[in-house]
Design a protein around this nucleic acid. Sequence first.
DNA 1: TCCTTTACTGACTGGTCGGTCAAATTATGA
DNA 2: TCATAATTTGACCGACCAGTCAGTAAAGGA
Lengths: 185, 185
Amino acid sequence: MSDTRERILEAARNAFSEKGFDGVSVEEIAQRAGVRKALIYYYFPSKEILFEEIWNNALEELEKHIFREIENENYYVKKIKRFLKAYIDFVTSRKILSKVIERERPAVLNTSTEESETTWSRLKERYDVFVDKVAKLIEEGKQNQIVHPDVDSKAAAKLIAQVMSGSSATEAIQALILRGLMKES
Amino acid sequence: MSDTRERILEAARNAFSEKGFDGVSVEEIAQRAGVRKALIYYYFPSKEILFEEIWNNALEELEKHIFREIENENYYVKKIKRFLKAYIDFVTSRKILSKVIERERPAVLNTSTEESETTWSRLKERYDVFVDKVAKLIEEGKQNQIVHPDVDSKAAAKLIAQVMSGSSATEAIQALILRGLMKES
DNA sequence: TCCTTTACTGACTGGTCGGTCAAATTATGA
DNA sequence: TCATAATTTGACCGACCAGTCAGTAAAGGA
């Protein structure tokens, strides 16, 4: 029920989206939240764990937004078009969450999965789960003969997930990827 | 003809590509280069300026690699195919440079161009120059009726420049983007 | 009322950060 | 040879870092 906890998360999201994990101090998050630094450690055991919650939450929101939109669509041409549209919608309307993901993705993906149970390896695994879900959707499109047979589902999913591009012309990107994906337009 | 200077640059490149600008200390760069920290400040006025040299050099190498490959090709279908191939070549063969760009791009692009003469605004301007060159190439492809008329050149250039993807399946990405770009395959 | 739990704070720690500087070392060339 | 310049070093600085902790304040329930 803690409103304070939410304020801290919100402040941290904004800070991380602007400056990245290493570029933000816990003190700065505290000031943005209007709270003393020690209080952050009352709600979160470490800066890393705080970031982990934000990261997981961002991906959860993204997945919810996308898959809620396409679950009742069984015609695969529409399904994939809607998927891309929902994805672009998210990127343009939930800019802070998108920026958090965009900003820290290189660091997260650079983590070796072998590192047992570090925070960063967990973040990577979570991201991989998301990419796999997108890959599965594209793969289904291929099996339904909608997606071009030469498309590598996993590679295409990675490409799409990479497009968190700051601001402009995301619809144009959507159209380009769609044309690259489909058998014919 | 200082060999030491090169050693520092090389060590810094490796460090920045693995951990990002904020994740690397000058002390760590010094140790990797087998040099005392103070010596780095003999060759470079600041950590930021050191990074600026690496960033600019990476983009210069990338541009050289790409445009050397396509300058003598006037048939635009081949020109754009060769361009994509050269780009993928660079990303797979010059991994450290690619990683430096990939890792710090979100931070660089997040900089407002208005910030007069900060290091980061200069890095952004340099990156924008590169994207503009790619956009110009695609635009020419459009005018030669090779690239699909609906393609937004600037947006497509941004998308391509974003693909520094760690490792795998870059050829598959190349094929997908090519299909999205071209009028017909 | 008093007591337990929850929320919050200030002051602090050990360590690291980017950066400086006087002095030492090594090369240069007259 | 000797002076001058280029290169390299260790010792140091103030600022800041993530994280700790004893203790205060505020609720809430009996």
